[in-house]
Design a binder for these strands. Structure first.
Lengths: 161, 161
DNA sequence: CCCCAGTGCTAGCTACAGCAAGCGCAGTGC
DNA sequence: GCACTGCGCTTGCTGTAGCTAGCACTGGGG
């Protein structure tokens, strides 16, 4: 009987829904990546496990792709390896590869803006750049096809290390 | 990690307890943040659940802090909300907050913009932020708007970019 | 020779992420 | 009044993340 009231929301999520593309076969790649980073750093599995605060068997299984670690674990591992957590997330396919210059970067990362606001800001930004580029091309030769890169000052001198 | 009770288990979720480690007591904040974003976007829990490809009860529990979602789930939710996954990760405490005035810094450092254009951009940016802050304060108390910077630690071997 | 400290891996368990069913309530139309 | 749709929440289950204990192997010393 309960079917009628239930029909309302019809959870048709289907099998795994929208096929989480990269996440599905995440396991292998990230594991190999971690192992590679660990070997490069010349530390043993147990050492890294201790640094990352996880058990050594578990880390072993992660590296061989038998387990897929949560983001917290990834974060800990990244710390242990002294690499940016972001790099690992990208490898894991749970964060898109970052493209664009520093401004685009910063705007997208800003959590106090809504998506729409980000779009507006980036739109204005792009239009400014296009405007400038056009103006420049009147006095500048060809071969100016590379728009991005830039921002040599980079990322605000993160004081650390 | 800290779930197995042998480590420093902070089951109490103290008020000022979120100090350096941040990763431990993620639960509450992220849920509220998601719910707030969902309300702002004017969509129902079931709608977002469908968009994100998760079940509606589960999303409900996430929002109330009863479950802590994996990174993949967070990624899906972020997509459903049209916000950057990074913002959610930062909220969840599994990614360090990017430097405070990242947008401001990046804009100021951009060599391809004129001073006037920088002013315009930053002006728009500031107005957006003020707008959001005002809107937030109507339904949300303080504490959400001020991201306390976590431990530095990260960013050593940035692989790309 | 055996013992010990190091490596990585297997076995088996507990806790919890994430799900499908289903409940109670508020609107809306007949 | 009643059927129906939409909302969010509770219940109870399954799969698996992540643990502890212990295995097999290597390399040095005594």
């Amino acid at each position: 009987m309960g079917k009628q009231a239930d029909r309302a929301d019809k959870t048709e999520t289907g099998p795994a829904g929208r096929a989480i593309d990269a996440v599905a076969d995440l396991g292998r790649d990230i594991g190999e990546y971690i192992r590679q980073q660990r070997n490069t750093a010349k530390i043993s599995l147990r050492q890294l496990a201790k640094l990352a605060g996880v058990s050594n068997p578990y880390l072993s299984q992660i590296e061989r792709g038998l387990r897929k670690p949560s983001a917290e674990i990834l974060q800990q591992i990244a710390k242990g390896l002294r690499i940016s957590a972001e790099a690992l997330y990208v490898q894991a396919g749970i964060l898109e590869q970052r493209v664009g210059g520093a401004v685009v970067d910063a705007v997208l990362a800003d959590q106090e803006l809504t998506e729409r606001q980000k779009q507006v800001l980036l739109d204005v930004y792009q239009s400014f750049r296009r405007e400038n580029a056009a103006e420049k091309s009147t006095q500048d030769g060809p071969g100016l096809s590379e728009p991005d890169s830039a921002a040599p000052a980079g990322r605000t001198t993160t004081t650390e290390e």
